[in-house]
């Protein structure tokens, strides 16, 4: 039996800014994981990744990142993705900086 498909999001780096972005259900790119489209079907995920990879003028290095349900919505399944979502731990830079401004 094949392993069950764990939920994923399409994530990449923005070509101009270099920051972390996620693919939303309306085909736009968003900077907040909470607004990303969660993919629970493998075939669907592959199609969404193909869409991302067809936008080299907009994004770099698109891939499928594992997510899981958390108390406040989806959260990254791996600590690497958690750092990408938040920013570095030595300064409040990156995405956590943007959140602090809100």
């Amino acid at each position: 039996m094949s392993r069950p498909f764990s939920p994923k999001v399409v994530t990449a780096s923005d070509l101009l800014e270099g920051d972390v972005i996620y693919l939303a259900a309306d085909d736009t790119w968003v900077r907040d994981l909470a607004q990303a489209e969660v993919l629970t079907d493998e075939a669907d995920a592959d199609l969404r990744l193909l869409l991302a990879q067809s936008q080299p003028h907009r994004v770099v290095g698109a891939y499928l990142g594992d997510v899981r349900p958390g108390p406040d919505g989806i959260e990254p399944a791996h600590f690497r993705e958690a750092f990408r979502r938040r920013g570095p731990s030595n300064y409040a830079h990156g995405k956590q900086e943007a959140y602090a401004d809100v």
Binding site: E17, D19, R84, P88
Partner: peptide, 9 residues
Amino acid sequence: GLYLQLHAY
């Protein structure tokens, strides 16, 4: 010398 890293170039 230009890399693309976790959060930025």
